[in-house]
């Protein structure tokens, strides 16, 4: 058991973890952060994606101790980011969700993608989002939602 320090959605948390504990389980079970989901537990579906120091990682494949001293952001933590909020609004407007279980992962991933490159080419965008699975098949709507939100990230850049 060791104590690690995580800044989760803006709040610094000290939490005691075992070396073999996964970031996903610590976030959900110990810190009650259920805005990160999981569906395959082996890095295939992308639903457990969080931003770790700004980089998307799959939290079911990440040891909690690896994240010591780092910042974790999940979808709910993005609500306070004005651009991300517009991105979320675009998801809502385009009906880019059905059951919604994958939606936080798509929000987190597409926020990262647009922050990095708001002029992203359509085919490249599909590739960037290919690591998250939506079984309801809302890919068309998500694509439109993300494309539509590019403008907010461009503004920020200028």
């Amino acid at each position: 058991m060791r104590t690690i320090s995580l800044k989760v959605n803006g709040i610094v948390k000290e939490v005691a973890v075992e070396d073999n504990e996964l970031l996903l389980n610590v976030l959900r079970e110990k810190l009650g952060v259920t805005s990160v989901k999981a569906a395959c537990w082996r890095g295939e579906c992308g639903l457990c994606t969080v931003l770790l120091d700004g980089i998307p990682v799959k939290s079911c494949m990440t040891l909690a101790v690896e994240a010591d001293g780092k910042e974790v952001i999940t979808a709910e933590g993005l609500y306070s980011d004005e651009r991300a909020k517009k991105l979320m609004e675009s998801f809502v407007k385009h009906g880019a969700m059905q059951c919604g279980f994958c939606t936080p992962a798509f929000v987190v991933t597409s926020h990262y993608v647009l922050s990095k490159n708001p002029d992203i080419d359509g085919e490249e965008l599909k590739k960037e989002l290919n690591g998250v699975i939506c079984r309801c098949g809302t890919y068309y709507q998500i694509y439109e939602a993300v494309k539509d939100a590019e403008k907010y990230y461009k503004k920020e850049k200028v």
Partner: peptide, 23 residues
């Protein structure tokens, strides 16, 4: 009219509680 699902904002923020999230 084209109306988004009523729980959309909970879904985009990951704060809709599924059975998976209840403990």
């Amino acid at each position: 009219k084209e109306v988004p699902q009523a729980d959309s904002w909970l879904k985009v923020t990951g704060t809709l509680k599924y059975a998976f999230d209840i403990n």
